[in-house]
């Protein structure tokens, strides 16, 4: 047997080896085993899998309808349905096969203290990393209410930092004015990486009943519809992260290798797949193959050589007074 060359798709993300840049996104794949129902699907096709958002106590989640298709996308308002951190740590994590991929917890809460405590309990578990969800648009307290306030975002990150030495990934909301400024504050508070972006807040209305279709009235928009927004946010956050060597999981509407490559060029070290799985559960291997073909075509030895290689058009200097 000869030693094979390392895969050009393999990356190191916050010190963790990822077999590919693909990260399966929180809320789309349950607690890591759901998609393995599909023959041909393997967690090995993803570098990491983010588990469903977890809180200190169990949460029932929102009333139906929780999902609704819109033009080129979908709204969701699940409301962090989860069995609580202790059940996740003691009941679910032991059933996961950590030889297949890296598993990342996603923590949420209604208070800074809850974020701290949930993170602390995951710290004492085999989980590989922790994603801080300060951008869930579908819960009344915490979530995006924290993520849209830079000072609050930093406080949450700081509290989680004190609870763990595992890699901390902060999931940023697009529903804010200055995402790059928020990222800067989170880096200072101890964030090791970012997920960019969470869903955009949206609504759909049943015109016959004149009521919102989503039970929670509003939901988070995902899918191809948000890709241009996500790409710009990754580009903006990368301007801050580049100098600190902080990696980004770029996400929002990726459905093809070309989409993934755009995000990597914009500055993402890894790319998140969520809504696209719903349409094609076997999309990971297609995206992996497509990225690899692109690397070959451009004679790049590994995917990390592509990260942040965007060459902006030079803009003419603004004229005074215009």
């Amino acid at each position: 047997m000869t030693q094979t060359d390392p895969s050009p798709l393999a990356i190191e993300f916050c010190g963790m080896p990822f077999s590919t840049p693909i990260v399966l996104l929180s809320g789309c794949v349950g607690f890591g085993e759901e998609y393995t129902r599909v023959k041909g699907f393997s967690n090995r096709d993803a570098g990491a899998v983010c588990l469903k958002g977890t809180t200190l106590e169990p949460r029932p989640g929102n009333r139906p309808h929780r999902v609704y298709e819109t033009q080129a996308g979908m709204l969701n308002a699940i409301g962090l349905q989860n069995p609580g951190v202790d059940k996740v740590v003691n009941g679910i994590l032991p059933s996961l096969d950590f030889s297949e991929t890296r598993f990342i917890a996603n923590v949420s809460g209604s208070s800074v203290e809850e974020y701290h405590e949930v993170t602390r309990r995951f710290d004492d578990s085999p989980i590989d990393a922790i994603e801080i969800n300060i951008s869930c648009p579908n819960v009344k307290e915490g979530g995006v209410a924290f993520g849209n306030d830079p000072a609050m975002s930093a406080r949450v990150v700081e509290a989680c930092r004190k609870a763990t030495n595992k890699p901390l990934i902060t999931k940023l909301s697009p529903n804010q004015t200055d995402i790059a400024g928020n990222a800067r504050g989170c880096i200072e508070a101890g964030s090791d990486a970012f997920s960019v972006i969470n869903t955009l807040m949206g609504m759909a209305i049943d015109i016959e009943s004149r009521t919102p279709i989503i039970g929670n009235n509003q939901g988070g928009l995902s899918g191809p519809a948000i890709k241009p927004v996500a790409l710009l946010k990754v580009h903006q956050v990368y301007q801050v992260c580049r100098d600190h060597n902080i990696p980004i999981i770029g996400q929002g509407g990726i459905t093809s290798p070309e989409d993934a490559i755009e995000f990597i060029i914009a500055g993402a070290s890894a790319i998140g797949i969520g809504t696209a799985l719903f349409y094609d559960p076997l999309i990971c291997s297609k995206i992996n193959n497509g990225i690899e073909a692109y690397l070959n075509r451009h004679e790049l030895p590994s995917v990390d050589r592509l990260v942040g290689t965007l060459q902006l058009h030079q803009q003419p200097a603004p004229k005074c007074g215009c």
Binding site: G27, C28, V29, G30, E34, Y35, R37, V38, K52, P60, G61, R63, P64, H65, R66, V67, Y68, E69, M74, N76, I78, Q81, T275, L277, F278, P281
Partner: peptide, 26 residues
């Protein structure tokens, strides 16, 4: 029937409230 996203149990988008011995669950 309910609006459905993943169809494999991954997203919890298609829930219904069910009465159980421990109370209602989605």
């Amino acid at each position: 029937e309910e609006f459905m996203a993943c169809g494999v149990g991954g997203c919890a988008g298609c829930v219904v409230e069910v009465q159980t011995a421990e109370g209602p669950v989605m």
